[in-house]
């Protein structure tokens, strides 16, 4: 067996193990792994400008300002509002007070620009809302 084949098999095995480890951290709607890149976590800093309080997935719009001063709005989805509400979360709690928040999450696998998934939102005073396990 060639070294290349062995390393390819090892890579596939590693990928499989990673997916198996990450899978239980996903929300009920199992489309997440088919839609977002589970291999690396992204971090955004910006201001939440709008929330689509809908099922089957909540959508949060984050205005991110680049170093050159231009602002881009990211569409970031997360768990269903049905689950957020039962955990005691409201739209107003997610919106915060308009201050900058830090969001960690995943990028869309289909290459759609400025589309992502939220694992966790952290607010300036230190409190956070976490919706999924972060990849390590």
């Amino acid at each position: 067996m060639s070294g290349a084949l062995v390393s390819r098999l090892l890579y596939r095995l590693l990928l499989f193990v990673c997916m198996a480890v990450l899978a239980p951290g996903l929300p009920a709607h199992h489309s997440v792994a088919g839609m977002f890149d589970m291999s690396k976590e992204i971090e955004w800093t910006g201001v939440i400008s709008k929330i689509d309080w809908i099922n089957p997935h909540t959508y949060i719009y984050l205005d991110v300002t680049d170093a050159d001063g231009s602002t881009v709005t990211w569409q970031l989805s997360t768990a269903p509002t049905a689950m957020l509400r039962k955990a005691g979360l409201t739209k107003a709690m997610l919106m915060g007070d308009g201050a900058k928040v830090t969001i960690t999450g995943l990028l869309a696998r289909d290459g759609t620009k400025h589309l992502g998934w939220i694992n966790k939102i952290s607010y300036p005073d230190g409190h956070f809302y976490q919706f999924a396990r972060s990849p390590r």
């Binding site: 951290g25 929300p27 976490q130 396990r133």
Partner: peptide, 14 residues
Amino acid sequence: INPTREGESICLMG
């Protein structure tokens, strides 16, 4: 899904 609370923080999973 087993939400936990710590102060104002809420965690749904992981």
